[in-house]
Design a binder for these strands. Sequence first.
DNA 1: CTGATTGCAAACACTTTGCAGCAGA
DNA 2: TCTGCTGCAAAGTGTTTGCAATCAG
Lengths: 176, 176
Amino acid sequence: MSEQPRVLASRQKFATEAQRQVLPYEPVCALFRRYLHGQKLKFTPERAMILDAALRKQGLFEPEQLVSDLKAAGHRASRATVYRTLNHLQDAGILKQVFFDNKQSYYEVIAGRQVHDYLICVATGKVIEFHSEKLRQLRDEICQQHGFEPLSHRFQILGLSPEGKKQAGQRPGRAS
Amino acid sequence: MSEQPRVLASRQKFATEAQRQVLPYEPVCALFRRYLHGQKLKFTPERAMILDAALRKQGLFEPEQLVSDLKAAGHRASRATVYRTLNHLQDAGILKQVFFDNKQSYYEVIAGRQVHDYLICVATGKVIEFHSEKLRQLRDEICQQHGFEPLSHRFQILGLSPEGKKQAGQRPGRAS
DNA sequence: CTGATTGCAAACACTTTGCAGCAGA
DNA sequence: TCTGCTGCAAAGTGTTTGCAATCAG
């Protein structure tokens, strides 16, 4: 049970068109191929699989989730390749490393999607995403004051969600 | 050279009044003692030393810096105790874990100081701190829309500083 | 006195890296 | 064919934890 039988057809087609309803794969893949080509890097089935898996994700995800998603889909995906590909996807502007916590990093697809910022409940761990145009304006305003050219940002608000407020009667938790 | 002779007077007085010009130690220490007492924890020389070392820091610092500062000051400071104490200081509202990068976490003293947010140059690594009242207002506004009670936040803007713009002629770098 | 704290070293968890064989272009 | 890529396992790194001795209150 623990030694899941090795899937032999590891280099099979990675996802049928029908399964890909989450987000248009083709345009993003084309973008990725263009990036890879420009960098003299190669487009491989593994990279395609990993991009595909990332595009299926809604909102935040962790590298480890991609690994297990790919494994569940019957591909053997080496951790190393996932991590290496995440970096390429980030450089290609397809993913964003949204933030880190003590342990790990979290990614989000940004190509063709709206970027988000996050409310994180310190009581429940729940993560709420939001988008604020005002925030973006304020960000750019602040940058201008410092002669700084913004490329991206990370913004997380830590606090108590409505549910968190109830259950966090006593324990204030570590706010930041 | 590598085996620095063990300092015997490890439980000596940790800092003279004269050395503490950076920030008032006493009031913050009193705050810490109150917190510890309330939690039925003990005030130890190690904790005092670590608080003292943290208060000397201007802006951001990493746990490892405290370890080496303490070592340099002639105290043997175990990594474990530093980490444990950083957590207490955070719970006491004296420090804030400002953000994480791939590897480590960064702290800042907040007791009696203004909290900051950061501009991080992706080309030079330079960190510029700023404070924006507007940002705080916007943060609270966003929270209100979600019935969320803000406790703190982490905000970092990634981009190019004036110097970074020059030297980053070609390499865009990994923006986020 | 008694329970909390310390230092040490081992344990942890995520990420990166070296290498030999494999495979895009 | 010529590079670059993959998987594996080992190495790295910041942080946490178990434990016996020690100390604060």
